[in-house]
Computed example of a mutant assay.
Amino acid sequence: MTVWRDVVGQDETVATLSAAAADPAQMTHAWLLTGPPGSGRSTAARAFAAALLCPDHGCGDCHECRTAKDGSHADVTVVATEGLSIQVKDARELARVAQHRPSVGAWRIIIIEDADRLTERAADALLKALEEPVPRTVWLLCAPSLEDVIVTIRSRSRHVRLRTPPADAVAELLVRRDDVDPAMAAYAARAAQSHVGLARRLARDEGARIRRRDTLQLAGRIGSLGDAMEAAADLASIATEESTASSAERDAAEKQRLLEQLGADPAARTQPPHIRSQVSALEKEQKTRATRFGRDVVDRSLVDLLSLYRDALVVQAGTPVELVNVDQTELLATLARSFSAEQLLACMTAIGTARERIEANVPPLLALEAMTISLRLPQRR
C-alpha cells in the first residue's frame, strides 16, 4: 500500500511527483496540478504532501502519511473553500503561514484545492510568497486548467497535468475503497463520466441517482414553450432541493456549535449584540456556501444533459462508441429520431452556453430557460 493508491489512472503524474518526493534535485517550491473535474487533483496533492513528509517517501501506513492525507498534519495547511471565491484576507494569512519553519516534518506544505477561485487581489497577495520562496515551504495549487490561474502564479509554478481516469479504474476504486457492488460501481463510474467524487455519490446515494434520472427524463418532455419553462423550473428546483438537503443539517449543527463555544443559550429568543454579530457572519458564510453548492448542482445536471445529447448523436450516427447513458435507450432513440445531427449539436452548444452564463453569474433560472427553449423537440413545435 502506498499514498498513491487512490490516485487512479494518473501513471505519469504519480511518476513525476513520487520522483520529486524522493529526489530533492527534482523539487521546486510551487506546483500547479491541473485536470478536469473529478480527475483527482486534490487527492494527488494530498498524496504528494504525504510522500514529502514520509521517511519512506509515501509508504501509506505511517503517522505522517495518514495525517498528511486527511489534512490533520501539523505542517500541512489545506484550503478547500466552500464559498464562491478565496478572499484576499485568506491569501494574506496563507502567505504569513508560509513564512514559518516546519514544526515536526521536513516540509511546510500549503495545499489550495481551488486555486481557480482566488480573486485577483488574493492572487496578488500570494505573489510575494511565490516570488521569494521560503526554504522548506511547498505550495500545491489545484485548478481545472492553466487558463483558470492568473499568469503570474502559473509562471512561478511547475505544472503537472492530470487526465480523466478510465471508467473501469474509477469503478475498481469504488469497489476497493468504498465496498461498492461491482455492478453499481460500473454504472456510477460511467454515469459520472469518470468523475471520482460524483461516482462515489451516485453509488452510495439513491436520491442522487433518482435526481439524475429525473434530469435526463426532462429532455423527452420539452415540446412547447410552456414545457421549456417548466423544465427550466424543474431543473432549478432539483438543484434547490439537493442543496437544501445537503446543507440544512450541517448549518444547524454549525450554529449550535458556535453558540455553545460562545457560551450562549441556544434556546434563548434573543442574544447579546456580540453573539448576534457572529451568528450573522456564520449565516452569511452559509448562504454563500449554499449559493456555490446550488450552482455546482445545476452544472452537474447540465453535464448529465450534455452526455445525453452526445449519446443520441452517437446512436444516430451508428458509431461503435460506448454510451454514457446505456440505461436510457428509449429516450436516446427518441432524441436520435427527433433531431438531426446539426440540431443535436445545437442542443449541446445551448447547454454549454448555459454553463458559461451561470459561471458568469447570470441567474441560473434565466440561463436555464434560454437553454431549454433551444432543446424543444422539433416535431412538437
Rank of each mutant, 00 (worst) to 15 (best):
A253D: 12
K255Q: 09
Q256Y: 09
R257F: 04
R257M: 10
L258P: 01
L259Q: 01
L259N: 04
E260F: 00
E260Y: 00
Q261C: 00
L262D: 00
L262H: 01
D265K: 02
D265F: 06
P266S: 02
A267N: 10
A267P: 05
R269P: 03
T270G: 00
Q271K: 10
H274C: 00
R276D: 09
S277R: 15
Q278T: 07
V279M: 09
S280E: 15
A281I: 08
A281C: 08
A281W: 07
L282I: 07
L282K: 03
E283Q: 15
K284V: 12
E285A: 15
E285M: 10
E285R: 15
Q286W: 07
R289E: 10
R289D: 02
T291M: 13
T291L: 13
G294N: 13
G294K: 13
R295K: 14
D299A: 14
D299H: 15
S301E: 12
S301V: 11
S301K: 09
L302A: 06
L302M: 07
V303T: 13
V303S: 10
D304K: 01
D304N: 13
L306D: 00
L306I: 00
Y309P: 04
Y309A: 03
Y309H: 07
R310W: 07
R310Q: 07
R310M: 04
R310D: 06
A312W: 02
A312P: 03
A312G: 08
A312R: 04
L313A: 12
L313W: 01
L313Q: 05
L313Y: 03
V314E: 04
V315F: 12
Q316I: 11
G318Y: 08
G318N: 10
P320D: 14
P320S: 14
P320K: 14
V321D: 11
V321H: 14
E322L: 15
N325R: 12
V326N: 14
D327G: 06
D327E: 13
D327M: 07
E330W: 10
E330A: 15
L331C: 07
L332G: 03
A333E: 11
A333R: 13
L335K: 01
A336N: 01
R337P: 00
R337N: 12
S338W: 05
S340R: 11
S340Q: 12
A341T: 15
L344S: 02
L344T: 02
L344R: 02
L345K: 14
L345T: 14
A346N: 12
C347Q: 06
C347A: 14
T349K: 11
T349P: 00
A350F: 04
A350R: 02
A350M: 06
T353M: 05
T353Q: 12
A354C: 09
A354L: 04
R355M: 08
R355E: 04
E356P: 04
E356T: 13
I358D: 05
I358T: 05
A360V: 07
A360R: 15
A360E: 09
V362D: 03
V362R: 06
P363I: 05
L365I: 15
L365M: 11
A367E: 03
A367H: 02
L368C: 08
E369P: 07
M371P: 02
M371K: 05
